[in-house]
Amino acid sequence: MKQTLIDSHCHVDLYDNPLAIAQAAERAGILTVAVTYLPSHYIQAKLHLNGFQYVRPALGLHPQVADQHEREIQAFIEQAKDAEYIGEVGLDFSKEYRLTQEVQERSFARVIDSIKDRQRFVTLHSRGAELAVLSQLTSARMYPVVFHWFSGSQTQLLQVLDAGHYVSFNTKMIGSARWEEDIMRVPKARVLTETDGPFVREGRKIAVPQDTQNVIKWLAKSWAVSIEEAMHQVAVNFSVLLK
């Protein structure tokens, strides 16, 4: 894979000017996985991103919109037949979304069943539900996936890694004392970069794909390698997940 910055989880469609964000990432050659909340959003993203080389739409069924899953799940199953990028999918058992836990679990089981046939890039949500997500993945014998913005315990992190999965880091994570310590627990070969834009911001600045360079700098410092070596490692990791 050509050495480039990689934003493995970005909500391009949720910026005020999605096309401008996509065009800027395309011009800069930043490989950007444009995750979506619902299959209907993914279908629109495919239309708008047609012809883009670096910005790639991902098929999603977000746990935080479980009230819309029933009318969208069949579209997910149909679109999953050809989709090479999946995200954002998963579970969210945080206080705000705990009431829809049963719906989320049923939907996630169907999502996994529709994508477990072959390896493809999958970025998922697991807030407050890390072990529930891992349990479903393990039961289905899923290929390795990416746990985006992991917020579980150190023990849970090790369980995720022991199962062969990956973790993606954004600029909000690298500013935390927790990850200053825990980055060394994550094998270099299991690390990806992301922004989770536009949900991540530094002061008033909303994160954009170009900000993955700040994560790369942090990784290079943490690993005691050059920026080029860190960028190459992340690119290799990403390419492995596409095979």
Rank of each mutant, 00 (worst) to 15 (best):
S126R: 07
E181Y: 14
A163D: 05
F199Q: 03
F121S: 00
Y166V: 08
S126W: 08
D182N: 12
A140F: 05
V122T: 06
V133K: 02
R185P: 04
P144Y: 04
R204H: 15
W149R: 03
Q136K: 05
Y166M: 06
Y166P: 01
V111L: 05
F199S: 11
S114K: 02
I183Q: 01
G164Q: 07
I183S: 07
M184L: 14
F108G: 02
I112H: 00
A189M: 08
R141N: 15
S151T: 14
E194P: 00
N170Y: 03
L158D: 13
A129N: 03
S176L: 11
S168Y: 03
L124H: 00
E194F: 02
T171I: 15
K116E: 12
R201P: 07
T138M: 12
S126G: 06
I174E: 01
E180D: 11
R120K: 09
L157R: 01
T138V: 15
F150E: 08
I115G: 00
I183F: 12
R110V: 13
R185M: 11
V111Q: 01
S168F: 06
R178T: 08
R127N: 12
V191P: 00
P198K: 00
Y143I: 11
D196I: 08
I183V: 15
D196V: 08
S139N: 09
E181R: 12
L158N: 10
H148M: 07
Q119G: 05
E180T: 13
K172W: 10
L131S: 08
S176F: 06
L157P: 01
G128S: 07
V145P: 00
Q159R: 14
K172Q: 09
K188P: 10
A109H: 09
L134R: 00
R120F: 13
Q156T: 10
G152I: 13
L158K: 14
R127L: 15
Q159G: 07
A140H: 01
R127K: 14
L161Q: 04
I174W: 00
T171V: 11
E130D: 13
P144D: 08
I183N: 03
Y143H: 12
S168C: 06
I112N: 01
I183M: 09
L131R: 09
P198S: 14
K205F: 13
M142Y: 06
G175P: 02
S151P: 03
K188Q: 15
L157F: 14
S176I: 03
R178A: 11
H125F: 09
G152K: 02
E194K: 01
G203W: 02
A129V: 05
E202T: 14
K205D: 15
L157G: 04
H165C: 13
H165S: 11
L158M: 14
F108Y: 06
A132K: 04
V200C: 10
S153C: 06
